[in-house]
Design a protein around this nucleic acid. Structure first.
Length: 471
RNA sequence: GGUCCCAUCGUCUAGCGGUCAGGACGUGGCCCUCUCAAGGCCGAAACACGGGUUCGAUUCCCGUUGGGACUACCA
């Protein structure tokens, strides 16, 4: 695509909230597009709304991008650093008669809007200040852009195809507020030109802004970039994803024990596909990603599938990496202390048994408890079912056998348990389950003999004794 | 209200005129098995509706319906 001219894209969030799922997906598609074509990925903070933008949210967005490993090449640029540039361009339009001062008070405007809406009429600005002969001295004003009122504008969208708008539905929009701050539809055009953006990849909630922006490009004599409008991500009720639908902040998923690569993999499949393939490495994504495979229709965010993908990524991850990733969750759970030295080699062995049974790092850490702690809390249901008097009798006998066992390995333990069951004419499960409950606190765990070996003889015997004595 | 976008299993999607409409999540059953997983096998489950175009429409066109977004001195 565009051989010779280097592709430049940007992700331009406004810092009025955390990096959310939808924003992350937009950032991801920009990132993949840039990497695929060896282009440049710019991060630009759209903070022209100074009342709603905060420093904390800028950091939060950057944090989210970094966690997902969506590294950018330039920026973050901040629009508040560029107000002088925008004012110059506003001045130019004013001089050329392509924009005008509007003295209507915001309250009046709002009133007229409400009235129009109440009467079922389009709430469009009536252009009453458009032809004012002379500037009104000492009166606050905003600057409006003179929108052409005839003809039509066609947006050739890379995803949606050609979209036609009648120009007369467009209003003279405000490009400079009365407080001197420029507005979104204006700065976005100036910046995209200034930063030589070649492709604007953004959510399709911006489609209706596009013709307005195209007219601003034209007023300056600039050639608009290419547009690609991504379909929205919706909640289960098919409305725009919001807090009502549960966690929407990307970092909330980190806290819930999701792996960044799993979230990226989930997000990329919302609106993009590559045949039947579900799981992709980062390299594959970069190699395969093009706009050709981006769908047009909105998609519903499905936490179940994300959970499944996360479990797949946990299974594939190497045990040592997972063990390290689990540490913060162990601390949060109070299983270990901050700064406590852990034998990561030993922990990895434990993690290995849990990899295919943990869908999140939170679940992993929860299971890790019975490897790490001295004693475990016994689940009452499991106790009622598997720690009956006749079971305890077996446990006592077993305790004796195990304490004399020199070789506390999975293979040896398995041999011992089988012999134990055979001698008494009982099923292996009849003895394995009570031991499992006594040692792990629950009725489900990885293979018992592995667990016993890793927990270690000392702790196993202590836990058995406790159960036996407490009856 | 106006403008625009969208429409294949419950969900994510493949399909780019002729397919038994494929895969994945979830779901039901079976196998494996010391439990739970993982894994394997099997099953239920979709082309919104109505007109065209065509020898033939899930696929192309139009309409209807349904959903969504936008409609600020927010972005």
């Amino acid at each position: 695509m565009n051989e010779g001219s280097k592709i430049r894209v940007r992700f331009a969030p406004s810092p009025t909230g955390h990096l959310h799922i939808g924003g992350a997906r937009t950032a991801l598609f920009n990132y993949l597009f840039a990497r695929h074509y060896n282009g440049t990925f710019v991060l630009r903070i759209e903070d022209t709304d100074t009342t709603r933008s905060t420093e904390e949210y800028i950091e939060a967005i950057v944090e989210g991008m970094k966690w997902l490993k969506l590294d950018w090449d330039e920026g973050p640029y901040r629009q508040t650093d560029r107000f002088d540039i925008y004012r110059n361009y506003v001045e130019r339009l004013l001089m050329e008669g392509k924009a005008y001062r509007c003295y209507c008070a915001p309250e009046e405007l709002e009133q007229r809007r409400q009235d129009a809406l109440a009467q079922g009429k389009p709430p469009k600005y009536d252009g009453r200040c458009r032809n004012l002969a002379e500037p009104v001295p000492d009166k606050p004003f905003a600057v409006r852009f003179k929108m052409p009122q005839e003809g039509a504008t066609i947006v050739n969208d890379l995803i949606k195809g050609p979209i036609e708008f009648d120009n007369n539905v467009l209003e003279d929009l405000i490009i400079l507020r009365s407080d001197g701050a420029p507005t979104y539809n204006f700065v976005v055009v100036v910046d995209d030109i200034d930063m030589k953006i070649t492709h604007i990849i953004r959510g399709d909630d911006h489609i209706n802004n596009t013709p307005k922006q195209i007219h601003i490009y034209r007023a300056f004599g600039w050639e608009p970039p290419q547009f690609a409008h991504l379909p929205m991500i919706l909640g289960a009720d098919k409305t725009r994803l919001s807090k009502r639908h549960g966690a929407t902040s990307v970092m909330a998923y980190k806290d819930m024990g999701y792996l960044p690569d799993a979230l990226v993999n989930y997000l990329v499949r919302l609106g993009w596909s590559y045949g039947d393939q579900e799981i992709f490495t980062r390299e594959e994504l970069i190699q395969y990603f093009t706009m050709d495979n981006v769908g047009k229709s909105a998609s519903v965010f499905n936490p179940e599938k994300l959970l499944w993908l996360n479990s797949q990524y946990i299974m594939k991850e190497d045990a040592k990496g997972l063990a390290e990733a689990a540490v913060p969750f162990l601390i949060k759970e109070g299983v270990i202390q901050e700064g406590q030295q852990l034998d990561i080699q030993w922990l990895s062995r434990a993690v290995n048994t849990l990899k295919e049974r943990s869908r999140t790092l939170v679940e992993l850490a929860a299971s890790l408890k019975y490897y790490i702690l001295e004693y475990v809390e016994i689940d009452s249901k499991a106790k009622d079912k598997f720690l009956k008097p006749e079971n305890l009798k077996h446990l006592s006998e077993l305790h004796g056998i195990l304490s004399g066992l020199p070789d506390f390995t999975a293979a040896e333990l398995e041999r011992v348990f089988h012999a134990f069951a055979d001698e008494r004419g009982i099923k292996l499960g009849a003895v394995a389950q009570p031991v499992r409950v006594a040692v792990t606190g629950g009725a489900a765990s990885p293979g018992l003999f592995e667990v016993l070996e890793i927990v270690g003889k000392e702790k196993v015997l202590k836990r058995l004794s406790k159960v036996i004595s407490e009856g």
